[in-house]
Write a protein that binds this DNA or RNA. Structure first.
Length: 254
DNA sequence: ATGGCTACGATCCGTAGA
């Protein structure tokens, strides 16, 4: 089984790229972020024609997450229970006995800003909730744009980024805390090329210079990690005309 | 080099992303 996560940066703009990629890659479960589409306008029919059921929670202009699967999705829940938030960033659903959590973590803007404080509060609430989810579901997969580069090797130029948002110590601690409940960074279960990233700025020809960050992640419970045979970043969609600034991340589970 | 793109909803620029 193939799991994937992709921040599409507008599902409306990227719909054809997405359906083409689904045809080529044939993932079983896909988590999408930054759909930027209200639920009433979600492209249910186009995705159904591509062979996918969808559950989604979105809003105009900002945020929005969705889970696609090659079969029915059950026990859908939007948001972090008990964490009041207008921003559509969190969606959970079950695909068979697999529990899937799709996340679009706050950006944080700059260290010390209100948005940074919100990011850390969001991570605190996420941590507590995921611990409960993991207690209920041994087969838990958490996928999404987590907006944190866990280590310096996940940053193209650690000196330039030192202390900045996405790499600051409190953010890395927050992500480590989430992993500490019993989740593995699937990408680091395997030998990987140096300078592997999942996001590149649109500006400054960042993709061509491979000036990126690894901020999109697949986190697997112990049971799933033991059955994970590969985790890769698919850079192909980032090379297309009018791409998302993020590349999809994929994991194979036996 | 502190900007540089891109998407969006609002106008002909501001907000946000990371």
């Amino acid at each position: 089984m193939k799991l994937a996560t992709w921040n599409v940066n507008s599902l409306k703009v990227r719909l054809e790229q997405l359906t083409g990629w689904l045809r080529q890659t044939a993932p079983d479960v896909v988590c999408l972020q930054e759909t930027k589409v209200e639920d009433a306008n979600f492209p249910v029919a186009a995705l159904e024609a591509a062979g996918y059921r969808a559950t989604f929670t979105g809003q105009k202009t900002y945020n929005g997450v969705a889970i696609l699967a090659r079969g029915p999705l059950a026990d859908v829940g939007a948001g972090i229970p008990g964490f009041d938030d207008e921003q559509k960033r969190v969606l959970a659903a079950s695909f068979g006995d697999l529990r899937v959590v799709c996340l679009y973590a706050p950006n944080g803007q700059s260290v010390g800003s209100d948005k940074y404080e919100y990011k850390l509060r969001w991570y605190g609430a996420l941590h507590a909730w995921l611990a409960a989810e993991l207690a209920r579901h041994a087969k838990l997969a958490v996928l999404g744009d987590l907006n944190v580069a866990p280590e310096d090797r996940d940053v193209h130029d650690p000196k330039v980024w030192e202390g900045q948002v996405h790499v600051s110590a409190p953010e890395r601690d927050a992500l480590r805390g989430v992993l500490a409940i019993g989740l593995k960074d699937a990408f680091r279960l395997f030998e990987q090329p140096e300078k592997s990233f999942s996001w590149w700025d649109y500006r400054m020809m960042a993709f061509r210079r491979n000036a990126g960050l690894r901020i999109d992640h697949i986190l697997l419970s112990e049971v799933l990690a033991a059955r994970c045979s590969a985790c890769t970043i698919d850079k192909a969609p980032r090379k297309l005309e009018r791409p998302s600034d993020h590349a999809p991340v994929l994991a194979d589970i036996s």
